[in-house]
Design a protein around this nucleic acid. Structure first.
Lengths: 341, 341
DNA sequence: GCATATTTTGAAACCGCTTTGACAATTCAA
DNA sequence: TTGAATTGTCAAAGCGGTTTCAAAATATGC
């Protein structure tokens, strides 16, 4: 049923019906009620595509997910981020459109969404250290918000990020204070901005005590359970094994813990572990006492905030960009203890 | 830039340009090349909303994600399913629109998407045993495919599912063959169809050997690491502790393994575990030897297949529904062994 | 060279909604 | 009672494409 048919039923013009439904003030209250009532009973709902063509607003936000940060991997934090953002979109009447694209084709995907007018705004996921997407989007008129950030000084763009550097420096300091000296870092791919900052945080903390990050105690890879296990086990069985690990993701740390077990050691006693915890809904870090000592920040909250900022920018893109860097919590769990001996 | 402006630049009519770009045969090859070339250099791309209004096809598929299967939980298999489906959509020129809605509001979300003409088809996630959505969608003209299924005889709908019952019967049989008698089931919420079938599979296997599923060795909950840990620990520390667990998800099993450690036991020796593994990209079940003995089926492949089936049905909804039930693999890993004694 | 068949192109009518500007209908002040 | 101000409603013009149907251009047959 379209607007014309529906308004015929009511004996009103399409104009009036449209206004009644749209909440415009020029329509008598009794008429409005009648229209709403009829819309419910007849199941009429304005066609979104037509409305959006007429208004020029797509009422949709685009997210581009690289199908493989490197291989076949989908970032597991994605689901929670989306849940947070989607909540805000729904409240504001926006749809969320997802494009799953092979890694590397992202820039093209953004351009597609922009040129075809499919969306009113974009969220940029997983910024790299030197990310071409931001410059590309800037050339465009489309509002966007970056989850994370890239070290780009020339462009003033909006982002919501956590203070990765500080979080990982604090994590490392904690281990140093506990007497650990051979500290390993199992990091994400350091082409990603967040991973680079995390490494810098670890390095700063070590350097401040006259230590350095040993190459054999440092990996940079996809943050899977498998890579965590593999990396940790190799280190634990190699020369100069670490007494502590700083691990970039909870999932990865599950592999680390498995490796610690495989090596016949006990986590929290023989080997300490500090993780970064995105607080994924299906992977709570313990209930009362955290399983892992962790720096943490809710990725779902970040999704919510990114969406809010984007909504604001869609309504008024002339305001100065929003740039937020969130401090992480540091929670003490059962996975850390004094260095052996 | 719109079609009119663009065609003016070329000195052609909008009609011809539209045809050239749309791949229609009535346009001379040289003209088509010229149009394509110009589209590239001028960065012209047809407005998707306008095109879709004109053709009546939205070129988009809807997915509704309950933001909480019960609490604040987002199903972690979602990311991988989406990656599989999105791949197929992209290849066919479809967008994917996601609606995140509070659990319970799903039916309304489906109706919204349908009535507003936002999408050409829907994927139904997480069917319950008695799911109202299928009957609701059937009343609609919109093609849809269910990931999983519901025990509804009266409606012939398309679905792609795995044989949950058989998988869990085989898993249980394996444990029984190893001599286990006190077998626990840590299941998902049994309002979900898949979870009910899994329980039935376990029960069938036990019954066939004159055993039964003990209430104190059976939980049904969200499939989080936390619930796995809590459930398993309580059972292990209680009376008549299990010697083996059948666990409905990999994530949950990570909690089970942690509980086994907490109880001072060793997985694979003191306690056996069989899981169902959705083969999530960030959670590979070991590399050469599986960590967990598992029944498994790729949820990403299911996403791909659901999308394919839906594309077919959008093109021709008159064909008989596609109903696929996939057999799971059963892989032996390090988590199972003969029952103690 | 002309009539006819075949390509190629174009004008105009949609698709279903929003919104502007105009017109009734009502209210109010004098 | 009249004229102005205020409401409430409507007709029609977009929004930016696709597609039908007709016309122009080219190719074919005799």
């Amino acid at each position: 049923m379209n607007l014309k048919e529906f308004s015929d039923i009511l004996g009103l013009s399409p104009t009036t019906v449209s206004r009644a439904l749209g909440g415009y003030p020029e329509v008598k209250e009794s008429t409005r009620r009648r229209v709403h009532e009829a819309a419910r009973t007849h199941g009429y709902r304005p066609n979104r595509r037509a409305a959006s063509l007429a208004t020029g607003r797509a009422m949709a936000i685009g997210h581009v997910i690289p199908t493989a940060f490197n291989h076949e991997m989908v970032n597991p934090i994605f689901a929670d981020f989306i849940a947070g953002a989607g909540d805000v979109y729904a409240r504001n009447g926006y749809d969320m459109v997802l494009s799953v694209v092979p890694d590397g084709d992202e820039a093209r995907a953004y351009r597609n969404l922009a040129d075809a007018g499919s969306v009113d705004g974009l969220i940029v996921h997983g910024p790299r250290t030197d990310d071409p997407r931001i410059a590309m989007l800037e050339a465009n008129a489309l509002p966007y918000v970056v989850h994370g950030r890239a070290p780009i000084d020339t462009i003033a763009y909006s982002y919501v990020d956590i203070d990765n550097l500080r979080a990982f420096r604090r994590a490392t300091d904690l281990l140093l204070d506990l007497g650990h000296r051979r500290i390993a870092l199992l990091n994400g791919l350091e082409t990603m901005d967040f991973a680079r900052r995390r490494r810098d945080g670890v390095v700063q903390a070590l350097t401040a005590r006259g230590l350095s990050l040993q190459p054999h105690l440092h990996t940079t890879s996809e943050m899977t359970e498998h890579m965590g296990h593999e990396g940790a086990l190799r280190m634990l069985r190699g020369d100069g094994p670490p007494t502590a690990f700083v691990v970039s993701s909870h999932i990865m740390a599950i592999g680390v813990r498995r490796a610690i077990g495989d090596a016949g050691l006990t986590m929290g006693r023989d080997v300490s572990v500090v993780i970064h915890d995105d607080m994924l809904s299906y992977l709570a870090n313990g209930s009362t006492v955290p399983v892992f000592t962790a720096t943490r920040s809710s990725v779902r909250a970040a999704g919510r905030r990114c969406a809010e900022v984007l909504m604001e920018r869609i309504n008024d893109n002339s305001t100065p960009p929003v740039q937020e860097v969130w401090e992480c919590d540091l929670v003490l769990g059962a996975s850390t203890g004094p260095a052996p001996q």
